[in-house]
Amino acid sequence: MLEPRLVQTTFFKNVLEALSDLFIEAHFEFSRTGLELQAIDTSRVALVALVLRAEAFNHYLCDRGLSMGLNLADMAKAFRCANNDDIITIKAEEDWTDTVTFTFESPEDGEILEFDFDFVGSNGVPLEIPEYQESEYQAIVRMPSAKFMRICKKLSSFGDSGDRDPVVIISVYKERVRSFARGKTGTSTTVCLQTQTVDKPKEPTLIEMKEEVSLIFDLKYMNSFSKASTLSDQVTINLSSELPAVFECKIAELGYIRYYISPRKE
């Protein structure tokens, strides 16, 4: 019996809500060292990688590795039924049948919820992902996740051009980052400057630029990442015209969630 046990229901609720908009299936790997999740979206433009070390969980027990592809929408629905302080136990039989059982136990209510999920294909993941080198990127922007969420919200409210997927153009130049979206009847632009760390030492916006860069992304990827970014105070955006962009939020030194996104060519 393989049986990871953990107490991070709220965290997983948020992760699954953010990911299930964009990614249908994900590959989950529980091991002694923690959890690794990877998923690719159906248009194969974005890859999400979540790493959460065992120490990130209040309670984490995993004697043997367990890896499987699961449907994210089904999981999000199951987690919506769970209480925030539930203890989650994940069980798969050793003979490797094709289902896994998630049990949510509410110590307070004395209630146990059980969901069986069939294994599904995981759409080409997991992939080998080497640690990325910041030096390879033309520009790196760090800002509070709340600020990033506000920008995405503004762009979304204006960026619906009707007949095609809305896009955003992110440009870094002269120590400022500009986000631009075109809607049916106008455009929306947000410019962020590097902020004085003395004024707001806890919420700096930092822009490191080696050279100017301007890239086009589908807005839906920004929106999904901005939901996931609630897991952390700060986001880091690595931009290059040669490499997939990396949108990252670190989870309190205990892991990270990263979106690798191919910019649009046009």
């Binding site: 590959h27 790997e29 690719i40 194969r44 433009v45 890859l47 590795g65 890896s67 080409g124 993941v125 997991p126 992939l127 080998e128 992902i129 080497p130 490499l243 997939p244 690798y260 191919s262």
Partner: peptide, 14 residues
């Protein structure tokens, strides 16, 4: 688990 290739080859294919 066994990996199904590298992220760079995935993005090159796209």
């Amino acid at each position: 688990g066994s990996k199904q290739g590298s992220i760079m080859s995935f993005f090159k294919k796209v």
